[in-house]
């Protein structure tokens, strides 16, 4: 672990913020994709049964 000196707080917090935000957007995208895919399958199966 490199010696970050007196600026350690700033460097670590900015990396934490960045990785946190990137994780947030990735997880949000995955969660949204799952939700839409599930609802789509539900509607499509309803349609196939009905058609």
């Amino acid at each position: 672990m490199p010696d970050l000196g007196k600026y350690a707080v700033y460097v670590l917090s900015s990396y934490a913020v960045t990785l946190g935000l990137l994780a947030a957007i990735i997880l949000a995208s995955i969660w949204q994709a799952r939700r839409v895919r599930a609802r789509l399958e539900a509607v499509e199966s309803r349609r196939d049964r009905g058609a």
Binding site: L22, I25, I26, S29, I30, Q32, A33, V36, R37, R39, L40, V43, E44, R46, R47
Partner: peptide, 27 residues
């Protein structure tokens, strides 16, 4: 590349959402 990957992935979701809307409208 992360931006590209996220956009490709989210565009797929948008397309499925659009299709969902079309199917519901059809129903």
């Amino acid at each position: 590349f992360l931006f590209l990957a996220l956009v490709l992935y989210r565009t797929q979701t948008e397309i499925r959402a659009r299709r969902l809307k079309a199917l519901i409208a059809q129903e």
